[in-house]
Nucleic acid binder design. Structure first.
Lengths: 130, 130
DNA sequence: CTATCTGCAAACGTTTTGCATCTGT
DNA sequence: ACAGATGCAAAACGTTTGCAGATAG
C-alpha cells in the first residue's frame, strides 16, 4: 500500500477498499462490479470515485484496462505481461501466463514501432460448456 | 453482391453503399465513419440503418466486430482469420495476415473449449512515429 | 403482396464532467 | 493549509429500440 502513496496517490478509505477488492478478485471486474461491492461498505460512494480511482491507477501504470469485453471496460490489477481467455457465453475472463514470443515471430513493416502484443483466446469456459 | 442476396439479405440502395464503403475501405471503420461517408450519398439515412445493416451482416457471418478500440466498435468485412496492429496514438488498425499457431502452442485447462484466438499488436504507426 | 428495411426519436448503459464540500498528507 | 478526493447530478457518448411508413423480392 505504501507503494501507492509513494506514487503520489492519496489513499482514502474508498480507494483502499477498491484496491483490496481488486487484489482479492481476479475476475477482471468492470466499474459496476467494483461499485456494487465497495458501496456495500461505503453506501454513499459514487461511480465518480470508482472511475477517478481507476484513472489515477491507470496513469501510474498500476492498472490495465482490458478491451476484451465490448460492452464495458474491465480492469486488471496485474500489469505483468500476460494474455486472456474470454468465454463467449458468460464473458468470464481468465489469465493466461505464457510468453508466445510474438514480437520475434512477426516483423512489422518499416516505419512502425512495435511495443507489445496481447493474445485473446476465446471459447467456452467450464461452466458454460454443458 | 449476389452473395448477400442469396443469404436472404435485402439489398437496399443504402446497404449497397455501406457494403461498397466497407469493401473499398480497409481502415476498419466504426459506425460513425460509415454513417459520415454514406450519408453524403443518402442524406436522410439514419444510424439505425447503419447498425441494422451491420447486424444483418454479422448474423450471416459477413462482418466481424473488432474489440480493439475501447471507445467504439469497429467493423471488418474481411472475415478470414487474421490479426491486427493498433496504433496507440491514432487508433489506426492494420491487418496482419500470419498464422501464429497459438491454438497448438497453448493447452487450455480441462473443461474449457478453445475456439480461436486473436492477436493484438500495439505500438506506433508510421504516421505517428515522428 | 408481404416480410423486411428505413428513418426518426426516444431510451439505454457506460463513462465523463462540473462543482461544492471534504480530507489525506 | 491546500492539492487533490468525494458525492451528487447532469451530460455525453456509442448503441439499441419501437414504430409508422416505405420498398425489395
Amino acid at each position: 500500500m505504501e507503494k501507492y502513496r509513494a506514487l503520489g496517490i492519496k489513499l482514502t478509505p474508498q480507494r483502499l477498499a477498491i484496491l483490496n477488492y481488486l487484489k482479492e478478485n481476479k475476475s477482471h471486474p468492470a466499474a459496476e462490479d467494483i461499485y456494487k461491492i465497495v458501496s456495500k461498505k461505503f453506501p454513499t460512494m459514487s461511480f465518480a470515485t470508482v472511475y477517478n480511482t481507476i484513472e489515477a491507477l491507470k496513469i501510474k501504470g498500476c492498472v490495465k484496462e482490458l478491451k476484451i469485453d465490448p460492452a464495458k471496460k474491465r480492469y486488471d490489477l496485474d500489469t505483468s505481461p500476460h494474455h486472456h481467455f474470454i468465454c463467449t457465453n458468460c464473458n468470464e475472463i481468465i489469465d493466461i501466463f505464457k510468453d508466445f514470443n510474438l514480437e520475434l515471430a512477426y516483423q512489422m513493416p518499416k516505419g512502425f514501432e512495435l511495443k507489445g502484443s496481447h493474445v485473446e483466446f476465446y471459447g467456452l469456459c467450464s461452466n458454460c460448456i454443458d
